[in-house]
Write a protein that binds this DNA or RNA. Structure first.
Length: 568
RNA sequence: GCCCCGAUAGCUCAGCUGGAUAGAGCGACUCCCUCCUAAGGAGUAGGCCCCAGGUUCGAAUCCUGGUCGGGGCGCCA
């Protein structure tokens, strides 16, 4: 209803289904006669829903043709239907075109069959104008998923718990943590925008050996000594030592606790500054204190998934696909990190969320299988536990690799990065690339606030829109918005058309980004919108336009879209 | 040795649940400020989509086997 493109897709699917359905009897009788196509097409239709993510859609796509003069949209429907109908794709495309023209009336200007059997659609000016009008009417909710998605495969609304960053509170947040934060935040926003209920959580590892080592390191610094073997060497440890009263005399456990608290608070501040909110910070220690871990272990034992060997307690994770069993309680009696994490996930499951997403670092990938194993051992549905892996961020300084080790204290903190290049640029850089590819981030390059920096392009387009709106004045904008665009007689300029096309893509872009957990797609989309706007800006004067108000509305739609992109 | 990720323009990367002549930014080159911000625009050059097979109407995309690069294989977290 507020998604013209989705509706068009719906019409297309309906037409395709009609074609398929109309010929079903004939193809069935044909099947009886010819043996070869029969066996080929029968299992194809049977297995389709299993393969295709969206039951109901046969793999029919509505795409943008490679060249603008090939039409506004194109579909592969005829080629998909061909094996089923036993006819030539081009011939089917012809029929599909006629069918669509009937269904769409004057919204469709013309159709053309091209290539191996593509059907290209040329939309009418009237369609453009009404689509723009509807997009404006939808206001902020344009692109938001609802029940009104006109096509098959509207995603089910879920309650999703996403855990991300969860960096150890034994040092400041690094640039890598920043990537996690940018990714998790963007994904959470996108999922929420897609209609899911999203909760964001940060797991604080405030327990265990690393934490103890932090305490020892603080004590050493407080006494003007070198931290012990395996301790933390960064300057921040000195600052902690100075900040904690009586650090030289205090027992290490106390220092650990105080140090972790300060680091966690620091992380919170940094994340706030980065514009990444969390609903909850979940303490690992609380799981020890509450007995939650013991409970989880007892359940596992009851289910027969643990055993004792070599004085330790093991999780029998191999039957669930892990390559070896894992220790839950060391021979020393200490519980492992895994044991705590199992209890944590029990807690998550008890909250009755539909889906749990843990964003993990590349160095945790070996952890995925054992977590899955524990999850399903306790009766969890593996399909509801997602463990995306973030690849590394390599820092370069003028082409030279910068070493990053938290223990050695050689690293660039997220705060440093923000100081250097600002929040927007930092987020953009960290979000630009797919999460499963390693990023090379050259600080010298990112630092340059120069035209070579890709970040500013989108901002510039936005600035131009803002400037136009300012010149037009509030009154004028309001009036344009109130006007009935659909009734305008203006023939949209090609640049205006392609800009509109880009804007209409938003719902589908968001849906894909959400489905594939791929926020970087929206970064690319933002750039495309900015490009389309720049072309429009060049070709169509808005403010002093002698033409009617059609243009004035367009520019407002633009600012809405641009703003959404910027706040992605 | 085993596992995960990658390999696409000079550089950094999109595109990958199969679609038409493979894209963007940066860099190089040529142009464009009487006009809503030139932080911009128009154009040119630049490609065995790592290799070899396979699947089919059709492969950068899917499968198999290699090669190279990154990461991981603790009773650390």
């Amino acid at each position: 209803m507020s998604d013209p493109l989705g509706e068009l897709r719906g019409e297309l699917e309906a037409a395709a289904a009609e074609l398929a359905g109309a010929s079903e009897p004939t193809s069935a009788s044909e099947l009886a006669g010819t043996s070869e196509p029969a066996t080929a097409s029968e299992p194809a239709t049977a297995s389709e829903p299993a393969n295709a993510r969206r039951p109901g859609s046969l793999g029919v796509r509505l795409d943008r043709p490679p060249k603008p003069d090939l039409g506004d949209y194109s579909t592969n429907a005829a080629m998909v239907l061909a094996p089923q109908l036993g006819a030539q794709p081009r011939e089917i495309a012809e029929r599909l075109g006629e069918l669509l023209s009937e269904r769409l009336g004057d919204q469709l200007a013309s159709t053309a069959v091209a290539g191996p059997g593509f059907l290209n659609l040329y939309m009418s000016d009237a369609w453009c104008r009404t689509s723009l009008g509807r997009m404006l009417a939808a206001e902020e909710s344009f692109g938001r998923a609802g029940e009104d998605l006109g096509y098959a495969g509207a995603p089910q609304q879920e309650r999703i718990l996403i855990e991300f960053v969860s960096a150890n509170p034994t040092g400041p947040l690094t640039v890598a943590s920043g990537r996690h934060a940018a990714y998790g935040d963007a994904l959470a926003r996108i999922l929420a925008f897609s209609g899911h209920r999203v909760e964001r959580e940060y797991y604080v590892n405030d327990h265990g050996g690393q934490v103890a080592r932090l305490g020892e390191s603080i004590q050493a610094r407080a006494r003007d000594e070198e931290p012990p073997e395996g301790g933390y060497l960064g300057d921040y440890v000195r600052r902690l030592a100075a900040e904690i009263p009586n650090a030289a005399q205090a027992p290490t456990e106390e220092l650990s606790r105080a140090g972790v608290e300060l680091m966690a608070a620091g992380a919170r501040t940094t994340l706030e500054r980065f514009g990444v909110p969390f609903d909850r910070f979940f303490s690992e220690r609380s799981l020890h204190d509450s007995g939650a871990i013991e409970n989880a272990l007892a359940r596992l034992e009851q289910l027969g998934h643990v055993y004792s060997a070599d004085g330790a307690l093991w999780l029998r994770s191999t039957p669930f696909g892990d390559d070896k069993d894992r220790v839950l309680r060391r021979s020393s009696g200490e519980l492992t990190y895994l044991a705590a994490d199992i209890a944590y996930h029990e807690d998550k499951r008890a909250r009755e969320v539909d889906r749990v997403i843990d964003v993990l670092g590349a160095d945790h990938h070996g952890y995925v299988e054992r977590m899955r194993a524990a999850w399903s051992a306790l009766g969890g549905d593996v399909a509801r536990l997602e463990l995306p892996i973030m690849q590394l961020v390599n820092l370069l300084e003028g082409g030279q690799r910068v070493a990053m080790s938290k223990r050695e204290g050689e690293f660039v903190t997220l705060d440093d990065l923000i100081d250097d290049i600002g929040v927007d640029a930092a987020r953009f850089f960290l979000l630009q690339r797919s999460h499963d590819t390693a990023i090379d981030l050259d600080l010298a390059l990112a630092r340059e606030q120069s035209p070579e920096n890709p970040v500013y392009y989108v901002q510039y387009a936005h600035a131009r829109i803002a400037s136009i709106l300012r010149r037009a004045g509030e009154e004028r904008v309001r009036a344009a918005l109130a006007a009935d665009v659909a009734a305008s007689a203006e023939q949209p300029h090609p640049s205006a058309r392609s800009l509109l096309a880009r804007l209409l893509d938003l719902p589908a872009e968001v849906a894909v980004a959400a489905e594939r957990r791929a926020p970087h797609r929206l970064a690319a989309y933002g750039h495309e919108v900015a490009q389309a706007f720049s072309a429009f800006y060049r070709d169509c004067r808005v403010v002093g336009a002698a033409e009617e108000g059609g243009d004035e509305d367009l520019r407002l739609a633009l600012s809405v879209a641009a703003e959404r992109v910027l706040s992605r």
